[in-house]
Design a protein around this nucleic acid. Structure first.
Lengths: 173, 173
DNA sequence: GTCGACATGTAACCAGTTACATGATTAA
DNA sequence: TTAATCATGTAACTGGTTACATGTCGAC
């Protein structure tokens, strides 16, 4: 994240929450501060004390040239890794025989609503990227947003389909 | 998993790897054995020593009625939880400005192939479920497979789209 | 006699979280 | 004065992994 701009631990937390938090994870602040110390010790970032007026002082971290190289090399050369997908909902559906089907239907409707909401949010973010001036390079953000839209739409479609399947079974019984 | 059948730790590992491993996680065997001891202590499963001929003895675990209730209650009553999605690929795409676009294209092509392969695998599993006799209740397995298909197809579509976007940018430069 | 599947465990480690703790500054 | 935002950290814990360790049995 420091590849975009020098930032403090506090800034990094805010930034992570609304960017990589959507498709990777939101680190705890305790971990961010710990990691910044490790990166500093490894010579990948530098720390600068910045006094502010009207606000507490902060420590701003910036990539060193070694840090920049390490970042690029990680993106370019590290091995392809499978996405991690953990779905509590699918777990419960899979074990659904041990439960009341209606409770699953309720759960799936919740998921349907939730994922529809996400599509709407992501569409709004997409519009922001598309209408941003050419001085902002939004391509990479846009790509991750597009991925989110595709996935959320898939989740919506599946929820609908699964609800129908379960409703058909309930009627028969 | 013991809701389907009494099983040994070894069985549970095999079973998990080819079922919930696809949409939740594959526990390490060390964890399975530890968890079985915890569940036994909590009175949710019972342990039975089983001698086999032609194979080492094993310990077979079965749900107690309390275990069965706890399982049903977990499926029916626990809170809705968001799916966890962690994509190393999306992380790298998001930080793509710091890297060579061609390396991202290479990565996305790898993803495209990988996800296409998954669609094929899942379609095969789907057929197995659909052609299984009515003595097997495949509905719940089928639902999770269908979810996988929807998601993998979304990933394929996105990879294609992302490759095109990045290729367009490379040409311009 | 050695390889592979079956079968069960221990110990060290680690990535990450939660809860706790502190303090500056501004605005209501 | 109290709540919100800015800002940084420590300590205890935990859900999991990896590596290590042991042994049965059948097939080739």
């Amino acid at each position: 994240m420091l590849g975009f701009n020098p930032m403090s631990g506090y800034d990094l937390k805010q930034f992570a929450d609304k960017s990589i938090g959507h498709f990777y994870w939101s680190p705890a602040k305790s971990q961010i501060y710990a990691e910044l110390r490790r990166l500093t010790a490894a010579g990948l970032v530098t720390e600068k004390h910045v006094e502010q007026d009207g606000r507490p002082d902060k420590r701003v971290y910036a990539l060193t040239s070694e840090g920049r190289e390490t970042l690029a090399s990680w993106i370019e050369n590290s091995e392809f890794e499978q996405d991690v997908f953990k779905s509590n909902l699918m777990l419960r559906v899979f074990f659904g025989k041990s439960a009341d089907p209606d409770s699953l239907i309720r759960l799936l409707r919740q998921n349907f609503d939730f994922e529809q909401g996400r599509v709407a949010e992501l569409r709004a973010m997409e519009q922001q990227c598309l209408t941003a001036g050419p001085e902002h390079d939004t391509l990479f953000s846009l790509l991750t947003i597009r991925a989110g839209i595709h996935l959320a739409e898939a989740a919506v479609k599946w929820s609908e389909e699964a609800i129908k399947s379960l409703e058909a079974r309930v009627v028969k019984a």
